[in-house]
Each structure stands twice: as C-alpha cells, then as structure tokens.
Design a binder for these strands. Structure first.
Length: 962
RNA sequence: GCGGGGGUAGCCAAGCCAGGUUGAAGGCGCUGGCUUCAGGAGCCAGUCCCGUAGGGGUUCGGGGGUUCAAAUCCCCUCCCCCGCACCA
C-alpha cells in the first residue's frame, strides 16, 4: 500500500519551498503556455482537472527539455452566471440550495454570504477545499502562483481599459441595436442560465409586410418575404382579439398580444383601441399592389409575432390546407359575409421552382402526407420540408420579372431590402419556440437594446489581420483550422457590453460593463506582469504604462515621474513581456473555437500583430460515466474528492491515459480504481528494482540487449508523443508498454547480476519518462533511487543509439513466435508433453526464402518463375510437388510478416539455432517440460521420430512434442 | 441548412493521412491457473468460431470498386455527436 496523500503533500511542499515553478526571464529558451482560466461559478471537478493537467504535463515535459517554462493561472469572475447563481441563493431556490448544501457541503448558516457574488466567486476560486486553487495544488500543477489574479482586480480593469481604448481608437467599436431575451419583471436581459424554461430558444427576425386596409395597416409577419408575389389572401384568427394601435405615424392592426412585444422592441407605440375585423373588406398587398380578401383561419397564433399572416398556398402547406378547408365549407365563409365563389376561385400562385417538386411544392407535400385539416400537427414537418428545399434549391420563376432566376436564398434578402426601402415593410423579432420563462416566473419577451456596443468583427481589415495571424499558427488537432477559418469569415458584430454582471466599465460608456468573453481576449499578455503589478497602485496604471510595457513606447524616466512607479519596475515589466511574448501555446476547449479562441486571435492580430500566439490546442469535452456533468445540478466528481480517494498521480495518469486531449473524455470510477492498482504495481516493481544490488556492468545477453533496445523505442515514442501533445500515446509508451516489457524482462532474464544492472538503468530513465505524468511518486522513487535533485527538473532522457538493437528485438520476437506456436500445439493436443524438439531451417531453405522474398517485394508473385529460379539456383534434389508446397508456404509466410523484420532476417543476422539454444531453458520452464532440444533440420543425428524437420521454414522452425 | 467530428471485437480506444508486423496495440471487464494469515491484493495465461500439431473459417456501420494484398485508397449509402452567438 502506498500512502499517496503523504507523498503528494511532501513533494508539493518541496516544490513550493524550492520555488521550482516561479520562472524569471533569463537567457534560457522560454516556453510560455496558457489555458483558459476557470469561470468560478462552482467547484473544480474532474473535467477541469483534465483541462488543467494537460498543460501541466506539457509544461513539465518542456521544463525537463531545458526550457524556461511559464505556466500561469487566474480566475474569471466577470459576467452574469456568478451573479445569477448568487441571486438564486438569495431567492433560496430549493434545488440550488440543495446542491450547495448537500453536494458541496456548504453549511446552511453560510448561505447568506453566498448572496454576494464576489464571495461566491472567491469561495470557488481559492477559498474552499472545492476551489480551483486548491484543486490545482492538490493535483501538483506546476503553476507560478505569484501571477494569479481575478478579472475584477482593479489592475486588471486598467488593463482592459487600455485594451478597449486601443480597439476604440482603431474604430472597431460600433453602436447599434440588438435583440435580447428580456424579463419585463426584472427589467433586465436574461441569459439561458436565468431561464426556467425555454433554454436554447433562438430569436428569429420576421419581416412585416404592410397590407393596406383602408387607412390602416395590417402588418403580416413572415420569414419568407420573397413569397409576397404569390399572396392570394390574408389570414386573421377570428377567435383572437385584434387592436388598432398607433405605431410611428401609422395605424396598425395587430393581435392584442403583439402590442407589448412591439413596445419592447423599440417601436413608438401609441394609443391602443379594440377593433372589429371586417372580413368583407379587401386589403392591398405591398410591393405588388393587388387587392386580396381577408379570410378566417384558426391556425393563426395571435401570440406569434403580429398575429397577422399572409397566405401563399403554393409554398406554405398551412395556407394551402386552410384554403382547401374554406373552399369545402362555404357555410363558414357565409357566416363572415364572404362570397364563397370568390374563395372557390382562388388558386395557388407558384413563384418558386424546385427540382423534385411539381408546380406547387406545398400542394405536393400536403397531398403526399394526406393532410386535410389546418390543425394537423404534421403541417409543421411539411412546412419545414418545403422551407428547407425551397431555400436550398429553389429559384424564382421567370414571371417574377425583377427577381427571375434568383436563388431563393438571395431573393429573400433582396425582397426584404426592397420592402424596407419603400416602407412597405418592417421587421420584428420573435422567439423560435415558446414558452420562455424567467426564473422569477415572469414570461420573457424579446427586448431590443438600443445603444448596444459591438466589437466590429465584420470589419474586413480586421478579418484579414486575423486570417494572417491564423495562417502562422500551429493548430492541434489540425482539423480545427477549418473551424477557425469558418468562424473568422462568419463572425460579425459582437455585442461586447452588458448592463448587468461584474466587470470593467466600458471606457467610453461607464454605465456599461465589458462583457466577459470580450474582457478575456489578450490576458495572456497580462500574466507576464501580473505579479509585478501587485506592488503597484492601480490608479497609476495609465494607458501610457501599458504602452511602454507592451510596445516599448515612451520614456521610462518620464513615465516613472508621472506615475510614481519605479523605473526599475517599469523596465522589469517591459523585460518580462518581451521575454515571454509571444505566447507559445494557448489551450482551451474546442467548443470555444467559435468565440473565445477566435476572439483571442482577432485581438492579438490587432494589438500585438507581430506577437501572435504560435499555437492553439483544442480539448474535447469531459463526461462522467457517460453523462453530461453539470455543476449546478451537482452531478460531478470534485477534484478534492478524487484526489483524496485515488491520489493525485492516479487521477493525473487516468486523465491523461484514456484519450488524447482533443477527444471527448469519460471519467469512470471503476477505471480510476483500476488505474490506482496499476500505479501501485508500478511502485512495488520500482521498489523491488531499487532494492536490487547496484551491480557493475557485465556482458549483456540477449534479453538484456532486448530490454535496453525496447527502452530506447519507448523514449522515442514518448518524446514524439509529448512533442505532439499526445498525452495518451505518451502514457502508452511511458507506462503501459514499459510495464509489459519490464515484466517480460524480469521473467525472461535468468542471470541476477544482469537483471539488477539492467533494471536499475531502466528505472533511472523510466522515472524521468513518467515524471511529467505522475510527478509525486517519481520524485519519491527518484529520491529512493539515490538521485540528486528533483526529477521534475532532471534532464529528459535521450535515445541512446548505441543501445538500439534491432537484432536483439528480432531475436526476441522470433523466440516469442516459437513459444506461441508451441503453446498452440499443446493446446490442441490436450495433454502435457515432456519433451520439445525444435528443428531450424537448413541453409538452402534460407536461400530459397531470400529469392522468394525478392519476388514478393515486386508485388504479384509468379509462382512458376519462382520455382524455376529456385530450382536453377539451388540445384535441389527434391520432388517437384514438395518444392511447390514449400515455396507456396514461404510466400504465405512472407506476406504475413512485418517488412522490416523480414529485411533484417533475410540479411542473415539471425542465428536461429543459437537464439533458441539460449532461450531453451526459459522455454522449458514456460511449458514445464523436462527436455528441450534444438537441431538443425539437416542434422543427421537429430531425434525426429515423426520426420517433422522437413516442415521447417526460415523463422518458423519445425516442432515436435512428446 | 451551414461548419466540424465520428461509427473498429463485451466496453473504452489505437491503427486509417504514407495499403502488407492486422484476429487487429493498450486499458477495462470477464475466464482459468499459481500464490496467498480466500481480501475489491499480487503474478501468469486466455478471451470471434471450429480444430487431438503450429491450421482453417469469418470480422473493422452497410453496399460496390481499385489491388497480388484494404480497417487503411475510390464511389454510393445508413446512422451518431458537437457548434451556429451575446452563453461561460
């Protein structure tokens, strides 16, 4: 049993005291990596454990490779979720309180403190056992803690202020209006976290077509303005209440429910009066100015947009079905005073042609599905199908002169533009699904925020800079490049200010807060000086200070006088930044590619065009026993619990071993436990090796040469893996394969002095290979092995080419193959043999083998020619049938064998007889035999009662068992 | 719809780009043997099917093709996951 927690604590303290991870600028080459700082709205769990262990492993590896490594960390406080969580505590929401008190064991009497967002954040940032700080320390992360900060620190705000001054000066902050989910009760925008229901519901923009109804306007809402050319009538729901309302200078008729929506969306809404719809009146369609009737329809939802709907039966299944119903039921029409003959005359007007459909797609689909009533739920699916196909493949018909031949996707925009330009249309936002309800219980509406500030990512010049930056970056995995490129193309104005939440006031509009993704784009630069800023009065951090630190602009003497910051300190900050920047690698979750990671490229491209990050590594998501983790629901495994149960090294190794960083990770308790046992086995193996006498070098025999050669392969494998951020592959080589090989060697090597000598050499290297992955136990064993200093700062092992021994590896795999064959035979003969005879192929068969190998190399084997050539060259006295059989077998064998081994074998370095004789004692033991004999197949004195020797082939000796 | 990723033996997961160590690494699970002051310990072996001599049959979502040779290359097809914004 290993006392993991004791070892963890011992070495974490030792590293801290030695200030091992507090790098200073020097003349050593540097390696600077960062990972997205945590948003501290809950405990650190194993998903985060993985996120932060990956960079730690890389940092530790690079440190051993001789780099001066900077790995800093901070905490993200900015934004709404923490504030939202504090609010939920204030409201004492039962489910949330339960998670806090039961899952996270927060005493109930402390709850009122959690109503304060800052306390809340601090608690999970660094105060409690559940915190990120404690979790990372417990995992042994090699972080320079001197540099930690939070995004609400005054100095950080100064840095954000500097940054936004720069962006503003570049003309990339623009103002506009922006739709948001809005709670009228709270008077605030709400995020998805604030919703009781309606999470993920989108805001869609409808076009309003202004139909003239006498002096009034009926604004019909549609997502398909291009279909205006096919309008046959207007729909209103007779069961709904419509009102007349002043909007701007116009008199609109909309559903009662629409009035508030318009108001929230910034329309100038005046007096509201009830109105009775006169279904006998005609309305004038905008743009085409034709008169159409108003018809009653129950499918019209008064709570969706304006409650007024235009009818395009050729392209809208609802419209088509509703019209059919009216045509079949004239009595309904009569009750509204509508002339049934007029309605009976209405025909769908097709304006879009779509491959795969007839004249009117909506009619086709309705007929195919057999839909007869406007309340049929399948109309949703029918509408989606028609919409999708027309949008993707449809073109405007030739009669729609102005837009003839235009793809629907374009026509939609063009028609909309025309409607807006002629004031025959307007726009309105609506939710894509309902209901949307705030946690306070109030229904949420779409609110349009005026005076919203945006980062103008749509700016072509900025995009170009971002693309240039991206082109120079190394991306892991490489497939992410397309995602980044796509994101840069498609990103447009990003609303970068908020009304609520913690953060930095926008410099030009202090009533707004810089939004939390927008304040976290270039903070990697801030880390380089964050420890020094702790001794500086934040008020003295003017833009000029940052200009000097980041750009070297200005005179430090003068700057010192104006700011009261020591010149040395200013120069030291400048030196830190100049030394560490650019960032070598940025690591983050791949779900952040569409926003944070691309933003960080944009902002670097603007602020540090010559110092863009060199690379990005994107991580996959983590799940727990196949289930999505959720801090707010409490289904997580907290880091401090995992470390307490398994030890830091087990957690680290498990996190690194099952998948590569960019793949999705699944934590399974049973596998974590298994990993702990594996690690304990390693420890007892290592301790056994350490207890062996330190033998002097003696001649290395076959198993020893094999072991040392395999070791070189694993050094190479692990090195390549970590160079490519492949933690899983590194673990495979450094841990699992090493375990297998060492065990095999211990079993195989019979001479104690050779075994001791080789194993001690192996362990010296092995501990260093494992140190980035499981640093605590490696330090412990490194010390026990009698090595000086920390293994964490020891040299990473280099491949010793002199120990690479392909012959030894070939010989060993040859022995293994023979053992395998013998085992198979014993299994089939179903009794325990006493005696084993092995007959290795005679020289002439090797020559035939070489010739056959040449044939195989060129592709198709002409067996006839091969036989002829072998006969001629070897002058054999052999029955033709026998030779044919033999060569066929050889070709088959060659096809099955590894190419490199074959080449080596064919060169004749392998003395089969000698290798098998060396291994014969081992083989005897393996099968509990009493005798093992090795003969050449042409040895006249051999014991061979069943004439097996004739079956021998190169690399496949004949076998006889009795 | 747009963009990205993926389907491999009971499970996870390598391999695929550069076709030939591929019945297919490694881990987990399971089975057997050994060891053991039977304990969720350790060690060894096995783990697609058939087979009293190292063999044969059939496998990498499905179908087709290229090739002496395909999990790997090409074509078609089915299915799954993630992102699409104001949310960190």
């Amino acid at each position: 049993m290993v006392n993991w927690s004791e070892i963890d604590a011992k070495w974490q303290a030792a590293w801290r005291e030695a200030k091992l991870f507090e790098p200073e600028p020097s003349d050593k080459p540097k390696f600077y990596l960062t990972v997205a700082y945590p948003y501290v709205s809950g405990p650190m769990h194993i998903g985060h454990g993985r996120t932060y262990t990956i960079p730690d492993v890389i940092a530790r590896y690079k440190r051993m490779r001789g780099y001066n490594v900077l790995f800093p960390m901070a905490y993200h406080f900015t934004g709404t979720p923490i504030v939202g969580a504090a609010k939920r505590v204030a409201r004492r929401e039962p489910a949330f309180v339960k998670v806090l008190t039961e899952c996270y064991r927060i005493p109930r009497e402390m709850l009122n403190e959690f109503e304060n967002p800052k306390f809340y954040a601090e608690y999970f940032a660094r105060q409690s056992e559940l915190s990120y700080r404690k979790g990372m320390e417990k995992l042994g992360h090699s972080i320079d803690w001197r540099r930690e900060f939070t995004t609400v620190d005054p100095a950080y705000s100064k840095f954000v202020t500097w940054q936004y001054h720069k962006i503003q000066a570049a003309g990339l902050i623009v103002k506009g209006r922006h739709p948001v989910k809005w709670c009228p009760n709270d008077g605030n925008p709400v995020t998805d976290h604030d919703l009781l229901e309606g999470e993920g519901v989108e805001i869609v923009e409808f076009t309003l077509l202004k139909y003239r109804y006498g002096d009034q306007i009926l604004p019909a809402a549609t997502l398909r303005p291009e279909t205006v050319f096919g309008v046959t009538n207007l729909w209103l729901n007779p069961a709904a209440s419509y009102v007349s309302v002043r909007v701007g200078g116009e008199d609109w008729i909309v559903s009662e429910q629409a009035v508030d929506k318009l108001r929230h969306q910034g329309f100038d809404v005046g007096e509201v009066r009830p109105v009775k719809i006169d279904f006998t009146k005609k309305v004038e369609v905008p743009l085409i100015h034709k008169m159409v009737p108003i018809l009653p329809a129950s499918f019209v939802d008064p709570d969706n947009a304006t409650g007024v709907v235009g009818s395009v039966p050729a392209h809208a299944p609802y419209d088509h079905v509703a019209l059919l119903e009216l045509q079949e039921n004239p009595e309904i029409l009569l009750s509204y005073g509508i002339d049934p003959d007029e309605v009976a005359a209405i025909r769908p007007i097709s304006l879009i042609e779509v491959p795969g459909y007839g004249e009117s797609p909506a009619v086709d689909v309705v007929e195919r599905l057999g839909i007869r009533h406007q309340k049929d739920p399948r109309l949703e699916e029918a509408t989606a199908e028609v919409y999708r196909n027309e949008f993707a493949k449809g073109r405007m018909r030739s009669w729609v002169t102005k837009y003839a031949g235009m793809p629907v996707s374009q026509a939609k925009k063009a028609v909309r533009e025309e409607l807006l330009a002629t004031n025959e249309g307007s726009t309105m936002f609506e939710f894509s699904a309902k209901p949307v309800t705030c946690r306070c219980g109030s229904p949420v509406v779409v609110g349009v925020v005026e005076d919203q500030w945006f980062l103008n990512y749509a700016d072509e010049g900025w995009k170009r800079k971002a693309r240039d930056c991206l082109a120079r970056m190394h991306l892991v995995p490489p497939e992410t490049r397309e995602q980044f490129e796509h994101t840069i193309d498609w990103l447009h104005e990003w609303p970068c200010t908020r009304i609520v939440g913690m953060g930095t006031p926008a410099p030009w509009a202090p009533n707004w807060i810089i939004e939390s993704l927008s304040d976290s784009t270039v903070y990697m630069a801030y880390y380089t000086i964050s420890h020094l800023l702790k001794t500086v009065d934040p008020n003295s951090l003017t833009d000029e200070v940052f200009d000097f630190v980041f750009y070297g602009k200005g005179d430090p003497q003068q700057l010192s006088r104006s700011t009261n910051i020591d010149v040395e300190k200013l120069q030291r900050m400048r030196r830190e930044f100049s030394y560490w920047y650019p960032l070598d690698y940025r690591m983050s979750a791949n779900e952040l590619i569409p926003n944070h990671l691309t933003f960080h490229i944009f902002h670097h491209a603007l602020l540090f065009p010559d110092l863009c990050p060199r690379g990005v590594v994107s991580f996959g998501i983590a799940v727990l026993e196949g289930q999505k983790m959720s801090s707010s629901k409490g289904n997580i495994v907290a880091i401090h619990e995992a470390v307490a149960r398994y030890g830091a090294d087990t957690v680290r190794l498990y996190l690194m071993s099952t998948v590569e960083p960019w793949q999705d990770f699944d934590w399974r308790a049973s596998e974590a436990l298994a990993m702990q046992k594996n690690l304990e086995r390693f420890v007892s193996l290592a301790e056994e090796i350490i207890s062996l006498p330190d033998e002097k070098m003696s001649t290395l025999d076959q198993p020893a040469r094999w072991m040392l050669s395999r070791l070189q392969g694993h050094i190479r494998g692990a090195t390549e893996a970590l160079d490519n951020f492949e933690t899983r592959k590194a673990t495979q080589h450094s841990f699992f394969m090493m375990m297998q090989d060492v065990r095999w060697f211990m079993k195989r090597e019979s001479r104690p002095e050779v075994r001791a000598h080789v194993l001690r050499r192996v362990l010296d290297v092995w501990l260093r290979l494992l140190a980035p992955l499981v640093p605590h136990i490696c330090e412990e064993l490194w010390e026990k092995l009698g090595k000086q200093g920390f293994v964490s700062t020891a040299d990473w092992p280099a491949v010793d080419e002199r120990l690479v021994d392909r012959e030894a590896e070939l010989a060993e795999s040859f022995v293994l193959r023979v053992i395998d064959d013998v085992a198979k035979i014993i299994k089939v003969m179903k009794r325990q043999p006493k005696k084993l005879c092995l007959y290795v192929a005679p020289p002439w068969k090797w020559r035939a083998f070489q010739i056959a190998l040449e044939y195989c190399r060129t592709g198709a084997v002409d067996l006839g020619r091969l036989i002829k050539e072998v006969e001629e060259k070897l002058e054999l006295h052999l029955a033709k049938a026998e030779l044919v059989r033999l060569l066929q077998q050889m070709v088959q064998e060659i096809r099955k064998m590894p190419a490199q081994e074959l080449d080596l074998a064919a060169s004749g370095v392998l003395d089969e007889q000698a290798v098998l004789k060396e291994a014969s004692d081992f083989i005897r033991g393996e099968f509990s035999l009493s005798e093992v004999h090795v003969y050449s197949a042409d040895d006249q004195s051999r014991y061979d009662p069943q004439h097996r020797a004739a079956l021998s082939l190169p690399l496949r000796p004949a076998i006889y068992l009795e």
